[in-house]
Design a protein around this nucleic acid. Structure first.
Lengths: 197, 197
DNA sequence: AATGAAAGGATTAAGCC
DNA sequence: GGCTTAATCCTTTCATT
């Protein structure tokens, strides 16, 4: 397991705050040379920790439509198909799949054609039930407090060392400091999944 | 209101895809010089359309906990207070307020303390009802909504939809939500011109 | 908004621990 | 392996038109 050190975490924090900050600036902050920072950032990109450099936009100023939150209740066999369609849609900004198999997404629709646009995005005949609510406020909060940023055990919160284990649950990677935390997490996760609600 | 033209929108799309892309690259894409691109981006930042340059991180590799989607049903008088608390919380990544006054947020909680962490984040005595579901997949897909990009009516400020009209006055393109706004704008524009000339 | 010159960053390559 | 320094190359900014 390639674990992030303190310097990686500080670099990430600086990039979250301003992704166009010069590498030479960052280098000065973390007491490294610019090439060393560049190499670390390359590694963070390759390992997938950094997905992309992007901009956070105030979409309310773009007036691209009404922001809505849509919940789709779906039969299990169409979840991934619907998820794909939703994620691919231009109007969709965030999409979540819950453990129950609901697909929840945040999108912008034209006020005069919400229903029509939804229908174009998803085959509504596949959907058991759906709900659309207008969102009056949406915020993305990428800034984080330092301690929470380190690679920590999903079960107990301790720092994960090279002795740690990783395992994938529902397509997502989790990290654990020891095998017993992994075992306990697995048990609890399955409980949570079964009894959600 | 200074309205965004097509070039601004294309610049934004390019930045959303890669915020560290050289301005000279962007300039070539939109047929402008690098200084012109730089000036436009400065304007977009000052006007608040661009909130910040940042990185999209795969937080599953960084932070302890299970991703959950929480819906809080709230009395109207505590919505903004709860919203503040939720947005300020470290574990919260996205927060939405619906028109009904529900607060919906996406966060990461440690598996052994979901209820406890929720309780520390929100005063549950204020909450009418709440629901926590495990999220098995979350994706952020920033886009500008493709061709339906947002323009506001130069006359009334409303969103310009496909029913809208555009017209050039003195070499500059203006957009209108409806023919009557266009007519009114033209009348006023000509008055203004006559008075000046 | 373009141009060209000057300043400022990023990246490469070679060498060190 | 990961770091540094120095040189090169590229990008951005500024003054001018």
């Amino acid at each position: 397991m390639s674990t992030l050190d303190e310097t990686d975490v500080r670099i990430l924090e600086l990039l979250v705050a301003d992704a166009r900050r010069p590498y030479s600036d960052i280098a000065a902050e973390v007491d490294l040379s610019p090439p060393a920072v560049s190499a670390r950032i390359d590694r963070l990109r390759e390992s997938g920790v950094i997905r992309r450099f992007t901009v956070d936009l105030d979409r309310s100023q773009l007036r691209a439509g009404v922001p809505v939150l849509v919940t789709l209740a779906l039969p299990a066999d169409v979840v991934s198909e619907v998820r794909e369609a939703v994620v691919a849609a231009d109007a969709v900004e965030h999409a979540f799949v819950t453990a129950e198999g609901d697909v929840v997404f945040h999108a912008r629709f034209r006020a005069d054609a919400v229903r029509e646009q939804l229908g174009r995005l998803v085959d509504l005949s596949l959907v058991d039930d759906y709900e659309v609510t207008v969102v009056s406020d949406a915020e993305w909060t990428p800034s984080l407090g330092g301690a929470e940023f380190a690679l920590s055990c999903a079960e107990c919160g301790n720092t994960v060392t090279s002795e740690g284990r990783s395992e994938r649950f529902d397509g997502e990677q989790y990290h654990f400091c020891c095998p017993s935390c992994l075992a306990q997490f697995r048990e609890r996760y399955e409980e949570l999944e079964a009894g959600a609600g």
